[in-house]
């Protein structure tokens, strides 16, 4: 090395107006525009699936089985992304699949979030035996591999979309409970909570009015990070046949169907649903990461 790495020539400071602009850029400049756009697009597609889908996602024509995407020989503009083993339009199934992923993802995160946050607050604020019980259960469940546990639950309750929501909620609430409890433990020692205690507020109103609003940020950050996990788990359960039941169009189910055509090279049945899952999960993770840094410095270690 010829120039020492820690010696620099200082550039002349730029004029103030430009500095102000760059300061703004630093605060908002790393906002994940593309991931947000992707998630919004998926949400819109899910809402307007009926209007957008060119075909019925659940009914195909057996004369049009295994059609490739339009740019390959044998493909046509009628089935832009090809058809599956029952002659159903892949694009339409993807569009309706977005609805399943969105609904399951958001609902499961909500269920897990509400249960986990409530139990985390109770555990952290009340302490004592309540804390002991909740945390022992949390630790045991956290130790179980979430996927195996979800498969087990799905196997005993049977497949349906709403069952999946409940199962994912039951599987993942522990992660909220752990984090939220930790937050509450430190909040409990804070000045405004002590003041509320001195002022004679009841335990319940302190938890609802003083503790809850202060852990909402963490819950939101955790929720955005959990969205990706939940969507992947849902796809996995559907892929294994214990998730969303056929003929409903779910991306994981489409991948499972796609296995049949894989060895003969019907790649579109495998590649497209997988890309959809990846895009959505990646977007959720990028937004979650950004939120974590912006909203909640305490969660940075997570």
């Amino acid at each position: 090395m010829s120039t020492p790495s820690d010696v620099v020539v200082l550039p002349s400071p730029s004029p103030t107006p430009r500095r102000a602009v760059r300061r703004l850029a630093i605060r908002f400049g790393d906002f994940p525009v593309i991931p947000t756009a992707i998630l919004l697009a998926v949400a819109l597609v899910a809402i307007f699936a009926n209007q957008l889908a060119p075909h019925n996602p659940e009914i195909g024509s057996l004369t049009a089985r295994f059609k490739p995407p339009f740019w390959q020989t044998g493909g046509s503009m009628k089935y832009i992304l090809g058809t599956d083993q029952l002659g159903r339009d892949v694009l339409s199934r993807l569009i309706f699949g977005a609805r399943v992923s969105m609904v399951v993802g958001i609902m499961a995160v909500l269920v897990a979030g509400v249960v986990g946050t409530v139990l985390g607050i109770l555990s952290g604020y009340l302490g004592g035996w309540v804390d002991q019980v909740i945390m022992r259960v949390t630790d045991t469940w956290l130790a179980l591999p979430a996927l195996t546990f979800a498969i087990f639950l799905a196997a005993i309750v049977g497949p349906s979309m709403w069952n999946i929501v409940i199962i994912l909620g039951v599987t993942y609430w522990t992660r909220y409970a752990r984090v939220i409890r930790g937050e509450v433990l430190s909040l409990r020692e804070r000045e405004f909570v002590r003041l509320a205690v001195v002022a004679g507020c009841s335990k319940w109103s302190i938890m609802a009015r003083h503790i809850l609003p202060n852990v909402v940020n963490s819950a939101i950050v955790l929720g955005s990070l959990m969205l990706g996990v939940v969507i992947i788990t849902e796809a996995t359960l559907s892929f294994l046949g214990v998730g969303v039941p056929p003929p409903q169009p779910a991306w994981g189910l489409m991948l499972s169907d796609g296995k049949q055509g894989l060895m003969v090279g019907y790649w579109w049945l495998t590649v497209f649903p997988g890309l959809c899952i990846m895009l959505m999960v990646l977007s959720a993770n990028l937004i979650g990461d950004w939120l974590r840094v912006k909203l909640d410095p305490q969660l940075r270690q997570l």
Partner: peptide, 29 residues
């Protein structure tokens, strides 16, 4: 010359036994 990454020597000299430490390469330092 063991500064954290964000810290930079932006000017001056450090004469030590007749040599300027600011001008030293990382290996010499």
């Amino acid at each position: 010359r063991v500064l954290p990454m964000a810290a930079k020597i932006v000017g001056g000299h450090m004469w030590f036994e007749g040599e300027d430490l600011v001008q030293k390469t990382d290996a010499e330092m």
